[in-house]
Amino acid sequence: MDKRTNEEWVADLRAGGDRQTGALEDLRAIILRGLPYAIAGRLDPNSPQSEALTEEVVQETLMRVLEYLDTFEGRSQFTTWAHKIAVRAALTELRRVRWREVPLPEMDVDDDMDASYREAPDEQASPEEQVAQAEMMKRVNRIIMEELTDKQRQALTAIMEGFPLEEAAGRLGTNRNALYKMLHDARLRLKKRLEKEGLTPQEVLSVFEQAGR
């Protein structure tokens, strides 16, 4: 039975005994119907890994639902709330598996502040545009080096490399929420420093967007 009202879900899951068992079985079936959407395109749905992940995520979700039942405020359907928990659990595990072999970029900055960017920034750009881009990159990089902490630079590097926030957070000894805050602070610092130097992000962007046109 998955046509319970929110109140019925909460009451049944709190009831204990057969009532709770029945609700957990129904919820398990609902979560199982949703998980293929999380796995699709990320893991072969017919693989043993997919089967193992599904079972692990269902168990974890049911435990979390019971643990956090008191925090459900009824602002959505109860099943949507449960799906949300399952999706988070599934994608967290999928990201971990997918990125576990990829080392996080390491940071060990010294005092070599005169280093400059020497690669051609954009092969499609004209020589003049490449010079302008290289100069702008050097300027932005100087700001990054001066404004951000080592950890902020490392986190920013990881995110620019496409690392999931959650995965980068684990490697940096923090959690996803704290890392988002750290990156938000880093973005704000860079934005304000650009403003202080009379630059807007749009002006920096224009140097790169004009190239090759």
Partner: peptide, 28 residues
């Protein structure tokens, strides 16, 4: 790591990526 390496990593990285994903954006 020297600053140049950091810069190259940020804007010109050859960082290893998962085979089925990750960014491959150029520095620009």
């Amino acid at each position: 790591m020297k600053i140049k390496q950091f810069i190259q990593r940020l804007f010109g990285s050859k960082q290893r990526k998962p085979s089925s994903g990750g960014t491959s954006a150029n520095p620009s």
